[in-house]
Simulated scan of single mutants.
Amino acid sequence: MSALIEAHGLTVLRPGGRDTVLQGVDFRIDPQEIVTVVGPNGSGKSSLIRALLGHMPLAAGRVTRRAGLRIGYVPQRVQVDTTIPMTVRRFLSLPRRVSDGVAARVLARTGVEGVGARQLTQLSGGQFQRVLLARALLHGPHLLVLDEPTQGLDQPGIVAFYKLIEEVRRQTGAAVLMVSHDLLVVMRASDRVICLNGHVCCEGTPQHVSSAPEYRALFGAGSEGTLALYRHRHDHDHDHDRDRDAACLHPRRQSGAS
C-alpha cells in the first residue's frame, strides 16, 4: 500500500442516521503530499476528516490506513478553560509527558520558541495555532491533519501559517491533509485540491479546480479570481516578503496583473 490513507465508497450519515452527509467518496493521500479539502458550509469536510481518522462510523465503504501510521491532528476547535492555569509546556505533556528538549524543539520548529512558560490564555491567536501544530508534531507523524487551522486569524496570520505548513512539510517529510474555507490562500501549497459538497465535485491541481464548472457553481461565477495568486507571474521586484504576499493576495482583476 503506497497511500497513507485510502477510502473507497465512503458514505456517512448525520447523527440520528436519517440524512446522508457524504455519499460514495473515494479518497487517498500519499506520503509527503499536501491535499486540501474545500467546500461550502455543511458540505461534509469535517465529517470526512473524522471518518478517515476512525472517529465517525461509516454507513458504507471502507477506509484503509497504512500499518503503523502516526497521525498528528489539529482539530477545528480547542476549548481552553480560562479558570485553570495551564502553561504551554504543561499542555504539550498532556496526556503523555514529553521531555523539555522535545518540547523546545517542536516549539522552535513552529516559530514560537520561548513560550513554554507562558499561560495558554496569554497567547495570541496565531501563537496558539502554532502551539497546537507543535503538539501535533511531538511524536513524528507521517501525516498531519489540520481541520480549519486558521480560524480566527487575520489575513497576514493566515499567509504566515500556510508558509509554516510548507516549511514543516519540507523539514519533516510529513504529508498534510487540510480542511479550509480560506479560498484566497489555502491552495497555495497544495499538490491536490478536493472540492466537496456531499460528494467529490472535482479534484486536481489548484489550477484545474479553479477552472472547473463545479467549483464555480459552488463558490460563484467570479470565484476563479480568488485563485489568481497561484497563476500570478512576477514581472517586478518587491522589497520585502510581506509586500510580495500582500500583492499576490488580491485577485487579478484588482491587482492589475495581466
Rank of each mutant, 00 (worst) to 15 (best):
G54K: 07
Y215K: 03
A160E: 08
V176Q: 13
L22C: 03
R244T: 00
D243N: 03
A160N: 05
S124P: 07
M187L: 12
Y73G: 12
P31H: 07
I71K: 08
A160L: 01
G152K: 07
D154F: 00
R105V: 03
A174P: 07
F161I: 08
G42T: 02
Q254H: 06
A217N: 14
T172N: 06
T87A: 03
R70F: 13
H8F: 08
S99R: 15
V63W: 06
R216A: 00
Q155S: 04
I29E: 13
R96K: 09
D100Y: 12
A108N: 11
Q254K: 09
V74F: 12
S46T: 03
T205W: 13
R70I: 09
P85Y: 04
A228S: 15
L229D: 01
R130K: 08
V35R: 14
V35A: 12
V35N: 14
Y215M: 03
A160F: 00
L69H: 09
A59E: 08
H240T: 08
R216I: 04
T121H: 10
L133W: 14
T20C: 08
R252E: 10
T226K: 11
H234Q: 09
H236P: 05
A134D: 15
E148Q: 12
Q76G: 06
R70P: 10
A136D: 05
K163P: 00
V37W: 04
H240N: 07
S255T: 12
I84V: 01
A136C: 09
G42C: 05
V63M: 00
I194T: 09
A136L: 12
C195P: 05
G72M: 04
V145H: 09
V176I: 11
